[in-house]
């Protein structure tokens, strides 16, 4: 059995999401190839070759793949699909855009956002914002899966897999890249951070969000997250949203500040090892989940906490 893992990268660096997806592939078992589709992405291929468990890195280096657009990348994956029983990608915004297209072109369902491997074709996945865990078994010959990266620990980087080029020219594009606006981020990446500090609606403005949340995050070496309400209100950029329909994180420590704990938010952080909640409402649902709860005004408590660290 062979498994193809689609690498997540920005043409210069391999995302840690890939090492976690390879871990899911190892749990399935079989010969694992990593596909790097990009432009001038040699460094990414080198990094992928170092991932433990990888038998071969296949590189499609072509301007057509520069921006990881779903149409050309899915055509490429389908072109290679005949060699594989499983096709995996991390459940990032790129993986989520590309892989369902691959599945449809292969006439199979995608198993979305798996959190555990239960057998060669059986997987656990959360549904209803994580209120239920489903175990499903794929019946088709080709199994197409996106992997929730917070649920798998990255493989080590001691390997030296061979790198082979793939020549493939996709059809003329009907979708074209125009621009990208990167959200300002200085600290660790949210999806891979050991500690996450998140702020909610209670922060009241972007200025206060930055003035209260950022110093605490800096002190802890933490990434910053946010509730949907905070993102909708413009206090935080969209890609900081933690939850059912945002990012899912499982850090060692998650600090929720002025976040009530709606199920859609809990879906994105309830597998953190330790959860701290600071909220002025003692009945806020977040306290049912928190290991340590502190009731009071965040505008007093959080600066005090930052100060005392």
């Amino acid at each position: 059995m062979s498994i193809l893992v689609l690498a997540e990268h920005d043409n210069s660096a391999l995302s840690p999401a890939t090492a976690r997806t390879v871990a899911a592939a190892l749990a399935i078992g079989g010969t694992i190839d990593v596909l790097v589709a990009g432009a001038d992405c040699g460094a990414v291929a080198d990094a992928a070759a170092r991932l433990d468990g990888v038998a071969r890195v296949r590189v499609a280096d072509d301007a057509a793949f520069a921006h990881q657009l779903a149409e050309p990348v899915s055509e490429l994956v389908v072109h290679l699909a005949g060699d594989y029983g499983h096709i995996l990608a991390p459940a990032t915004t790129t993986g989520k855009s590309v892989l369902p297209r691959v599945a449809a072109l292969l006439d199979v369902m995608q198993v979305s956002d798996i959190t555990a491997v239960k057998g060669p074709k059986a997987f656990e996945r959360p549904v209803y914002a994580g209120a239920a865990l489903q175990t499903v078994e794929a019946t088709a010959d080709t199994v197409v899966v996106t992997v929730r990266i917070s649920a798998f620990d990255a493989v080590a980087e001691t390997g030296a897999a061979p790198i082979e080029p793939v020549a493939f020219t996709p059809a003329a594009p009907k979708a074209r890249f125009v621009s990208r606006e990167a959200a300002a981020s200085e600290g660790p990446e949210l999806a891979n951070a050991r500690i996450v500090v998140s702020g909610g609606r209670a922060l009241g403005s972007q200025e206060q969000f930055n003035a209260i949340i950022k110093p605490l995050a800096d002190k802890l070496g933490a990434a910053i997250g946010a509730s949907r309400a905070a993102v909708d209100s413009g206090y935080a950029p969209n890609d900081w949203q933690v939850g059912q329909t945002g990012k899912v994180v499982a850090p060692d420590l998650y600090v929720a500040v002025g976040i009530s704990g709606a199920i859609q938010h809990l879906a994105g952080m309830k597998n953190a090892k330790v959860i701290v909640a600071i909220d002025k409402d003692p009945d806020a649902p977040i306290f049912k989940l928190a290991d340590y709860g502190l009731v009071g005004d965040l505008f007093e408590l959080v600066p005090e906490l930052t100060e005392s660290l």
């Binding site: 921006h67 657009l69 990032t92 915004t93 790129t94 009907k174 979708a175 074209r176 890249f177 125009v178 621009s179 990208r180 606006e181 990167a182 959200a183 981020s185 999806a191 950029p237 969209n238 890609d239 990012k247």
Partner: peptide, 13 residues
Amino acid sequence: REVDGGLETLELD
């Protein structure tokens, strides 16, 4: 589009 890392703009036929 809301993507990991920020916003991306595409033009589609």
